Computed example of a mutant assay.
Amino acid sequence: MNDYPPVDRLPAPQRYGSLRVQTSDLGPARWLTEHAAGQGNFGTVAGVAAPGFDAYARVLHPASLDERPVRWAAVAAAYGCEVGPGTRWHEVVGMDQGYNNASEYGLPGLWDEHPAEGPTPLAVAQALIPVLARHTGTSERCWFGLWHGYGRWDFGHVPTFGTPERDEVLLAGTLAEAVSPVSLDEFAELPDLWWPQDRAWCLGGDVDLVSTYVGGSRALIAELLAAPELETYPVAPGDSVG
């Protein structure tokens, strides 16, 4: 497990945005820990978004131009390639052919910032929430995991639950409150993991990834794949996340 010392960190808050930090009972996360044990690893879709669902989707974090979102497909078209379920960003811009490629730094008029690494970006999360809400009966009671290694807060004395390669602080709140940490400041990370009380789906991201993964019913994944605000692809639980 990653364990970074709480150097120059602020005391752990009781609330992370509007989400309540759980300091005793980690029971709501037990199913996630038990499912993850012995089933795949961090390098797979199921290792990020939990195994056992009927279908999965990969949601790409957009690149940007002047802080406006840019789809991977638009960038790929400019470089004469296509994006598929397993495509990596470095493949889209030709960085797999060496770091001397000018595409590492953007393409004037098309993109100037790489996709954001880490938990789900705010705009993507805001597009996901109404879709996810339609596929759970408990959107007013949801649970979240926040990697305790993010640098600002000292969660050293807060109990954590384990997922592949990560220790997570358990948070509680409504689905709509998943984006509330942005009220702290522009650098506050959203939770890495989201799931409703009825466990109808699970959303997973990670500090090292430029995609978010969602496991759920076939109906949910079909709606995500059709959502015009999102750039999504179907994936399998054993697929690599890169």
Rank of each mutant, 00 (worst) to 15 (best):
L209I: 00
D239Q: 14
T23C: 12
C142W: 03
E34Q: 12
A178M: 15
H114T: 00
E117G: 05
G27I: 01
V131N: 05
A178E: 13
V124W: 06
V59N: 05
E117M: 07
E140L: 06
A188I: 06
G86A: 14
H114V: 04
V158D: 03
T174M: 13
A172Y: 13
P85H: 13
G238E: 07
P196G: 06
L132S: 02
H90P: 00
D8M: 14
L170P: 15
S217K: 06
G38F: 06
M95Q: 07
L128Y: 06
N101H: 14
L193D: 00
L193I: 15
T23H: 08
V131F: 03
V131K: 02
L170S: 10
A50Y: 04
V75S: 02
G38C: 08
D208V: 00
A236I: 00
T160I: 01
G109T: 07
Q97P: 06
H61E: 09
A123K: 05
A49C: 15
G137T: 12
W153N: 06
L220K: 09
W89N: 02
Y56G: 03
S180Y: 12
A102Y: 13
I221A: 03
V70A: 01
I129Y: 01
P237V: 10
L230F: 13
E67T: 12
G151S: 09
H90N: 11
P164F: 04
A29M: 07
P51E: 09
T33K: 05
P13C: 13
